[in-house]
Design a protein around this nucleic acid. Structure first.
Lengths: 148, 148
DNA sequence: ATCATACATTTGTATATACAAATATTGTTT
DNA sequence: AAACAATATTTGTATATACAAATGTATGAT
């Protein structure tokens, strides 16, 4: 990926802004690929993310603030995101009996099964996205990203 | 930035998905910082981006498809984005006389002056974002990002 | 010249996101 | 117990974005 070529400029961009633009371009690309891989399942990346978190709970219900805390991209309207998953039958939502302010969200069997299929689709996608990277380079990239 | 800590998980994430999540987290952070740096000017990152492209034209007008082509994040409604800049007096828009399908967009003096102020604000922000990086590491990061 | 096609932009619409305010429930203080 | 603050979620609203369809203009073939 050549930054200058993509944004169609001939002049040299200073290293710091160039890096910021580069990060955004790469991220756009990754998001685009992943979103289209999830398209057959009709879920957004955020919804997929929530399903993964719920699976990680291993049956233990999660409430909205827990979800919000663990999501990669924060958003205040997790309510509506869960609404969507509910409509698809991927989660159940009940009022927490011990504290009626809270809600308890659990992934359904359908949700779990579909999530497995999504995982397969995504692991194929990862192969594509990272096709030019060997293990050492991925480690190196992660080390650099840790510096942010 | 520790991925596992941020998304609150204890279990080890395979390297490829971990990198994808890592990229997104870093990007979110950069966007957040930049967006708030641009807030005083009441422009979004996209709008800032368009202003920079127009400056790069050095007086030569740009039409919508040119802008679209050069934007970091593509979006089909560049029309409405330019509407916003127009409302703020940062650009002028006229119908292209030689081909009336096209529009000609140029940055105004006000736009140029404000853009300079934005540049200053952003260069300060870059110092913050990349505070843990030396030049060699930035080069290294760019080299790795090129592999995408 | 007329028609079909391609081009450049605009508009419509559905969905996503950000932020603030509202609602409901619980806990704490007096 | 009543009043107040704190917590958890929901709703409202404005703006952003993605995608498809519509509009207006130019070009080429017949």
């Amino acid at each position: 990926m050549n930054v200058e070529e993509i944004i169609k400029t001939t002049k040299k961009i200073p290293l710091e802004p160039r890096t910021a633009i580069h990060m955004e371009l790469v991220n756009n690309k990754i998001n685009e690929i992943m979103t289209s891989a999830l398209k057959p399942f009709e879920v957004s990346m955020q919804q997929f993310n929530v399903l993964r978190i719920l699976r990680g709970q291993k049956g233990k219900p999660a409430n909205l603030s827990t979800l919000n805390e663990r999501m990669v991209t924060k958003m205040s309207n997790t309510t509506r995101l869960v609404d969507k998953l509910l409509a698809k039958g991927f989660v159940n939502r009940t009022v927490c009996p011990s504290n009626r302010r809270k809600v308890e969200i659990v992934i359904t069997d359908t949700g779990l099964k579909t999530l497995e299929q999504m995982d397969e689709a995504l692991s194929g996608v990862h192969k594509v996205i990272f096709k030019n990277f060997d293990n050492k380079e991925l480690e190196q990239l992660n080390t650099l990203l840790d510096k942010f």
